[in-house]
Amino acid sequence: MGEKKIYSKLGEVIAKGDFVLTGELEPEKTCDLSHTIQEAKEMAPYVVAANVTDSPLGIVTINSMAVSHIIQKETGLECVWQLTVRDVNKLGIAGMIMGGHALGLRNILSLTGDHPNMGDMPESKPVFDLDSATLIKLVREMVDKGSINGHEIEHPPTLHVGGAANPNADPMEAEILKIGRKAEAGAEFIQTQVVYDIDRTIEFLKGIQKYKVPVMLGIFPMKSYGMAKGFDMFVPGVDVPKDILAKWKSVKTDITDKKEQKNVYDQLNYEFFKPFISELKSKNLLAGVHCMAVHYTRIFPKLVEVIGA
């Protein structure tokens, strides 16, 4: 974020050039946030901030702006408010950005959002008035120029905005050029989709290096064989490598003691991600790691050491 103003802890750590670790909170279809608050408390000592998802897969959940605010208030953990353009038009989103600021939110991750058609309210109207790049541009206008569409904001918001990238995307060149657009729009950081393929990841990160946007790599440590298999089967476009699946499977079948099983799973994750991340770090391709392992907070204390965050 260079010489730019700093509005959040995340912004500060990135600007300093320290290696960042962010986590992820996935609130559900509920008004009771005790589980999410508990997870936030567990990861808080180890992460700089945690993303709060906005109805992923188009399955409606409690609103991410409200949850981000409550988590910050209850736990002190800074949030990255995931904001999709799926269900609110430009006018509504501009209002939300001011509201988010007023609620103490200082980081936005701009996302397109999964189409309502994929989720549990498929009859809902898809909005997509903005897209993930034009939302970034809007936030930056509001923050940097203090205006919306050229109209002055009396007390403008101050927050950082980042975008997403998918190193698994094929054709890759289209994805790289798209990141160029997000950079031009003013993205201050990039968080990537989960990756497992190191060669592809290197090729992609090198491809977007010219845009000079700090990148946090998305990783998904797998808590169990069930998790690994579920991820492989249900997350479109990301395949968990066969050898990993086989290793995780053997833990499930060969080790009967549950406690021992947990330890081995954790160990396997460290063994996989340590060389993966250190190779990318040594090539100067990363600003940090975004760990999306939800409901797997016990991984954090050691993960911080392993990736050197």
Partner: peptide, 23 residues
């Protein structure tokens, strides 16, 4: 584009196919 985006493709694209309509 299923979302009528001005700056695609979005993260819903897998191997050139769209998330809407089961790829």
């Amino acid at each position: 584009c299923a979302k009528a985006l001005m700056n695609g493709p979005c993260g819903g694209m897998v191997d050139g196919k769209c998330e809407v309509g089961n790829y």
